[in-house]
Design a protein around this nucleic acid. Structure first.
Lengths: 187, 187
DNA sequence: CCAATAACTAAGCAGTTGCTTAGATTTAAC
DNA sequence: GTTAAATCTAAGCAACTGCTTAGTTATTGG
């Protein structure tokens, strides 16, 4: 009995995600989202409740997009080699042409304050923790490390991965690949 | 023939720097600076021109504060061992009690957009580049690496250092020290 | 074709941002 | 003591923030 939506919610979230990825959370205004998503503020709030809602949906979409890579890591049986492949795959995933945008999640973790955005922060931490779990799982496959060593190396790898999110805005592709290469030497 | 300033410019910048360090650039408002610095907005603008001016002075002060550590690195003759000491010294420097605040420069690089704040970005990049120069210098001391290897390892170390700025908000002290330890196993 | 319902547009809300300005107050040379 | 200059306070500026609301337009079952 009523009018139809003139937009597809998945399609507009795709556009929102790209904007957040390029721009960050705080410095992306609802007015910018309006233009990028191609719909009115009213429709944004009707569909996603508020700006936080738009971002949480963007993270969900980001998750499904990066799933191809994490799935490969999850299915891999190559131990630390599988993790290295994940690093390289991620670099490719985070690229838009010649520009590396880093990880949407890491970028946002770095930007927002936990006490100002607890819900978003929780979602982001969940995401990061899942990756660390996969690192531990793969490190166990190699069957030559003790439990403590595995935990320490997982932290080390997380640190390198977090670093890549910043480095990818400063270094070029050859440098980034070289960083990954050295990161996995002797591991 | 005129009234005297009721505040010391160096002292109020000290307070501004601490606030920026804790809070970041964008999310520190001039009203917050007013309260923290203990002076009126008029005085802020009279002394430092604008918010950007306050930040640039804060970076200068940060530079003199961290100088003790970089000086140690500059004077060290221990090659890669000197760099590792720098990492550990920095961890201590960036700590406020039990809380690690990361590097003011790295935090801000991560936060601001280059085209919105080109002057600030330039100052931050200059800072980072100086550190990388010291890394290269120390790597050369060990007298066992080729030129290409040295450049690659300097990038690798910058990546780890950048990572530490994020990691220090997620991991505890023991984990951070363990990350540093493993980072230098690879050189 | 009509009435009910949802989606649309656009104006506007209060609160915050960086920054400025008008006017009062303090200082110090004469 | 008067006067000129710099510093102070506090109010206010336009532009922006996330979000809401009043009113119009489109859709569809009866």
């Amino acid at each position: 009995m009523a009018r139809k939506k003139q937009y597809n919610e998945t399609e507009v979230i795709e556009k929102a995600m790209r904007l957040f990825w390029r721009n960050g959370y705080e410095s992306t205004s609802v007015r910018m989202l309006e233009k990028e998503m191609g719909i009115n503020q009213f429709s944004i709030y009707a569909s996603f409740k508020n700006k936080e809602g738009v971002f949480l949906e963007s993270i969900k979409l980001y998750n499904t997009r990066i799933k191809a890579i994490t799935d490969t890591l999850e299915k891999s049986n190559n131990g630390v080699v599988g993790i290295k492949d994940y690093f390289l795959d991620f670099l490719d995933f985070s690229r838009e042409g010649a520009i590396f945008k880093g990880c949407l999640v890491t970028n946002t973790v770095n930007e927002i304050k936990e006490d100002a955005n607890p819900v978003i922060m929780a979602a982001l931490k969940r995401f990061s923790l899942n990756i660390r779990v996969l690192f531990v799982r793969n490190l166990k496959q190699d069957d030559q490390r003790g439990v403590e060593e595995i935990e320490a190396q997982a932290d080390y790898l997380m640190n390198a991965l977090l670093g890549l999110s910043i480095s990818s805005k400063v270094f070029n592709e050859a440098q980034l690949k070289s960083i990954i290469k050295i990161t996995f030497l002797h591991l």
